[in-house]
Design a protein around this nucleic acid. Structure first.
Lengths: 106, 106
DNA sequence: CAGTATCCCCAGAGATACTG
DNA sequence: CAGTATCTCTGGGGATACTG
C-alpha cells in the first residue's frame, strides 16, 4: 500500500502502526521511559536503523517524546506522550489477540 | 521483519495483521458475508492479487471462511469464522484510534 | 465471477562502518 | 551512548493478461 486515498480510519491507523515493530515498541514504553539501547535489548531482532526510523515516525506523529539529556555520554529517553496513551487500548487488544493466536497452536 | 524469533504475542499478531489491508478487509466482513468483488469495491485500491493473497492468509489462519456456491457464474462468499470474531475488538479499537488520528489533523 | 499466471520494479529493510 | 551514512538486496506488491 502506498498512500491513503480513501482516508478510511483503519487504513490511517494501520499505515502508522503497520510494520511489525512500532506497536511492539510502544508496548515496551507503557511502563515508563526507556533509553535507546534498552529498547534494542527489548527487541533484539530490530536493526538499529529500523529502531531509529520507527521511533522517529512515532515521534513525528506526536505519540512518543524524545528527551535528550546532555550528559557525557549522551542519554536519550523515549516516552509515550499523552496522545501516545491512546495506543494503550490498541496494544492491550493486540496482545490479547496475539496470546490467543499462540495458544491456539497447541 | 522476516520471522518471529521472540515469539512475542504482539509480534505474532502483527505478523498476521501486518500490511494495511487485512484488518481493513475484516472490518468489511463484520456485517456479514461478502463476495469477492464486493470486497474489491469496498477497498478500491487493493490489487486483485493482494486481495486474494490476504483473504487466503486470513482463511489459512482460520479467521475467515470461504464458501463456494457452484452456480453459474460461480459465487464465492467470505465470512468471519467464530475465531475470526476475536478480531472484532481489534477492529473496533483500531478504528477508534484511526478516527482520533484523522480528527487531530484539523 | 473469481480468481491464476507472469513479469517487473522499487521502497523497505539488513549489514556494516563511522561519529558527535 | 545514540545515533548517521552507505551500500546492497530481496521480496512485497503493482499491472496486465488469461481462464474455469
Amino acid at each position: 500500500m502506498k498512500e491513503s486515498v480513501t482516508g478510511c480510519s483503519i487504513e490511517e491507523a494501520m499505515r502508522l502502526l503497520g510494520g511489525c515493530w512500532r506497536l511492539l515498541l510502544v508496548s515496551y514504553l507503557v511502563d515508563g521511559p526507556k533509553r535507546f539501547n534498552a529498547l534494542r535489548r527489548d527487541v533484539p531482532h530490530i536493526s538499529q536503523r529500523m529502531l531509529t526510523l520507527d521511533l522517529r515516525a512515532l515521534e513525528e506523529a506526536g505519540l512518543v517524546a524524545r528527551t535528550v539529556y546532555p550528559e557525557v555520554p549522551v542519554k536519550v529517553e523515549y516516552a509515550l506522550t499523552a496522545d501516545g496513551q491512546r495506543l494503550l487500548p490498541v496494544v492491550a487488544v493486540m496482545k490479547e489477540f496475539g496470546l490467543w493466536l499462540k495458544g491456539r497452536l497447541e
